[in-house]
Computed example of a mutant assay.
Amino acid sequence: MEIWVNPACSKCRTAVAALDEAGVDYTVRRYLDEPPTAEELAAVVSRLGLEPWDVARPKEAREAGLTAIPKDADHRTDWLEGLAAHPRAIQRPIITADDGTTVIARDPETLSRILAG
């Protein structure tokens, strides 16, 4: 299991604490220090069943100029590259289980689903 975190984020700290409490083996990726590539983001959004703009944090995406990019298939790569260049704009925490199940664990229900898997 891997979790992408920003240590300054309370939801990330909550998710890490829940993984610890559950005794789950996981790897932490501080995605601001080690940003995902556009290809890694493409794989994550595919597993989530979302588009890149769906995993963008509104304020940070706006500040990075990403919201000027159209939200359509022709600009999907632009979004992926933009998020890779501005990782602060990516929703967090993102957890990928060993079976490939991926969630954005911003609420207790989503977090419990990944732990139950």
Rank of each mutant, 00 (worst) to 15 (best):
T67N: 08
R92A: 00
L83C: 04
D98K: 14
T96Y: 01
E60D: 05
P93V: 06
E60P: 07
H86F: 07
A61M: 12
G82I: 01
K71W: 14
D74M: 14
L83V: 04
H86S: 10
D74W: 09
R76G: 02
G82W: 03
A61D: 03
A84T: 06
H75G: 05
W79V: 06
E63R: 15
T67L: 14
I69F: 09
D98L: 04
A84F: 03
K71E: 12
I94A: 01
T96L: 04
I90Q: 10
R76A: 08
D72M: 11
P87G: 01
T96R: 04
I94K: 03
T67Q: 13
E60W: 08
I69H: 06
R62F: 15
E60K: 11
G65H: 09
W79G: 00
D72I: 05
R76W: 09
R76D: 06
R88D: 10
W79M: 06
L80I: 06
K71C: 13
A97I: 03
T96C: 01
D74K: 15
A73L: 08
L80M: 09
L83G: 01
A85T: 10
I69W: 11
R92T: 04
T67A: 14
P70M: 13
E63V: 13
L66H: 03
P87R: 07
E63A: 11
D78H: 13
D74A: 15
A89R: 02
R92D: 03
G65Q: 12
P93N: 12
A68I: 13
T67K: 14
A89Y: 07
R88Q: 13
P70Y: 06
I69D: 00
A97K: 09
G82T: 00
A64Y: 11
D98Q: 07
T96F: 00
I69A: 04
A84E: 02
A97Q: 01
E60M: 03
L66S: 01
Q91M: 13
T67G: 15
D72K: 07
P93F: 04
D72P: 05
R92G: 00
A61N: 06
A64F: 14
D74R: 15
A89I: 02
D78A: 05
Q91P: 10
E81A: 07
E60G: 02
A89M: 01
A64H: 10
